[in-house]
Design a binder for these strands. Structure first.
Lengths: 339, 339
DNA sequence: CTGTTAGCGCCTTCAT
DNA sequence: ATGAAGGCGCTAACAG
């Protein structure tokens, strides 16, 4: 049987309370006693039973998620947060969601500035990368609230943690796919983006360009065209670019609005155009199924949400999460390995 | 505050013990009383605190893992099992590992037939798909022990669950990648396999052939060549096949032994040959990094092990795991999105 | 500084 | 068929 606090107490010749104090680093224990207890812990190979501790503690972690309205990917994210809310009693969390208009830094700032430090231990947000938002995040940090950025990072801020994929690597991955799909052919590659005010879009564009230019010299980038993740604007951008560039052989949409892409892709081009997009949604599944999209790069927003919760809880307890453990993978899906 | 057994007891006008009996479906409660309790549960929206229940129960789940010696993928699997053993106190499991010689059905059978039903509640094994192994698994099932197949399934048996990827889909995915990487060129595709006595290899070969033949008519399969997952045999098989087929434009190794492939691939062929293999290992990482492999299809054996444990525990408690929850994904890695 | 004691939510004898 | 009481491993007042 694995040792308990009782065993430690007996072994160290002290009481339960003292053991508990040492175990939890609480003050009011003589250095000598601390050492006795630590020696006993060491000798017996004690490991704390976390669920018993949580049971006794009865602590809950009030968390706030700030998510933009808009594209269906964000709806998926919100669904994952809601599903985490279902589990919240088991995980001792108490989660609130605030939705804000997309591409609206002021709205995010307003929400962040209204957070009550007494009622919230951690905030997770999908950030627009602007100075005002960074400043608001830093203010939260100053008030002792931990902040995790979700999906899109805020590199200029002092946020506690970023829960998302390495978007530079995602861009490189897209380039690796498109380069191989074009297999030696030469031509233009259209890059469509949502907004360069989103750090994830910025990073993807940069990673894509780096690899395409260095490894696939026959391919030339057109764009990135900014569409604010609006499907209609995506459609028009694609139509315009294709008309203007008869030698277009690939498209990379690194933002949202895939519906517009699907509408713009003339059936006639099937088989000639390599198309890579982001995020598995109903639309992108359809694109894959119909053979209009060749690959979808995905981030598992369920993982991201769960990671954000773990990180925020850990920080609230003064622990540092293992960052290796929390890395979010860049998934690649063809129609054949869709989950 | 969320309701507890006390609240249910008060609401139903019975004692804690009775509530507990009803909650756990134990006998010795009048139908009328059962209904009263169930009504109270319903009304208050009670959900049991699993960790408190486990704490009180003190139950442990003794599990046995049977893993072949051999390729490095299996070593990775074993490492994941060992890491699960680290967590075993928290998960209330007690895990034993038995390694058996590869491709040796008799050895597996011997281990399975020696299992003591009193000391083991569930077995997970990487199976060679032969009638003897299936029979041994069925004997375990008859003795009331749940059995999960790991990585490679045993379709002819009555095993409780398969923890692994859909290998037909994995084969299709490989074909989708190779077909696109060859982008309209015509030629031969070498398929290298470990053993057709492994159902995962069988399935991959079948899925690969199905898609390649239907969607990429310019590509013709050579093989599959069986190598028993031996790297030296892989190397020779590849050399022989390439010498015999000057129009070879792609290779799919659906089994192990990637070291042999790496040795056989002449540097001169870089850029002409599309190469897809399975499982992220040191060797395949190297292949990706050097540009000799284009893509690696992977199954996350950590997920598989954790899934096996969840499933076996659930079955031991008479629960049926949600199969949607337990699906293992088929990962695709380029050098750019390697974790 | 240290120990005693009473829970946290649930399960389990042992009585009744 | 039902209830009372004690305990799982840990924490947290509250006393000393």
């Amino acid at each position: 049987m694995r040792p308990t606090v009782h065993d430690i107490a007996a072994e160290a010749g002290v009481s339960l309370a003292t053991v508990d104090r040492v175990l939890n680093g609480r003050p009011g224990v003589r250095q000598k006693t601390v050492e006795k207890v630590e020696a006993a812990v060491e000798r017996l190979g004690y490991v704390r039973d976390v669920s018993a501790a949580n049971l006794a503690r009865g602590r809950v972690y009030p968390l706030l998620f700030v998510v933009p309205e808009g594209p269906s990917f964000m709806r998926g994210l919100e669904a994952e947060i809601r599903s985490a809310m279902q589990r919240s009693s088991a995980e001792r969390t108490s989660i609130t969601i605030e939705t804000v208009p997309p591409f609206d830094p002021a709205a995010i700032v307003a929400v962040l500035d209204q957070v009550d430090p007494a009622a919230v231990t951690g905030v997770a947000l999908v950030a627009t990368d602007t100075p005002e938002v960074s400043a608001a995040v830093d203010r939260l940090i100053d008030r002792g609230i931990h902040v995790a950025t979700l999906v899109s990072d805020l590199p200029g801020s002092r946020r506690t943690h970023f829960c998302g994929i390495d978007n530079l690597a995602a861009g490189r991955t897209a380039a690796g796919l498109i380069g191989r799909f074009c297999a030696g052919r030469s031509g233009k590659v259209l890059v469509v983006a949502g907004s360069m005010a989103l750090s994830d879009h910025m990073d993807r564009a940069a990673g894509f360009a780096a690899i395409l230019n260095s490894e696939f010299p026959g391919l030339e980038i057109v764009g990135p065209v900014e569409t604010n993740d609006d499907a209609d604007r995506v459609r028009e951008a694609v139509r315009t670019a294709m008309a203007a560039n008869p030698d277009m052989i690939a498209i990379y949409n690194l933002g949202a609005g895939n519906r517009g892409l699907l509408e713009a892709l003339p059936q006639a081009d099937r088989g000639r155009l390599a198309v890579v997009v982001h995020e598995v949604t109903e639309v992108s599944r359809k694109g894959l199924a119909e053979g209009l999209f060749d690959a979808v790069i995905n981030q598992d927003c369920g993982h991201e949400v769960r990671s954000a919760i773990r990180v925020l809880k850990a920080r609230a307890d003064g622990l540092v999460p293992l960052s290796a453990q929390e890395r979010i993978r860049i998934d690649i899906f063809l129609k054949d390995n869709l989950p």
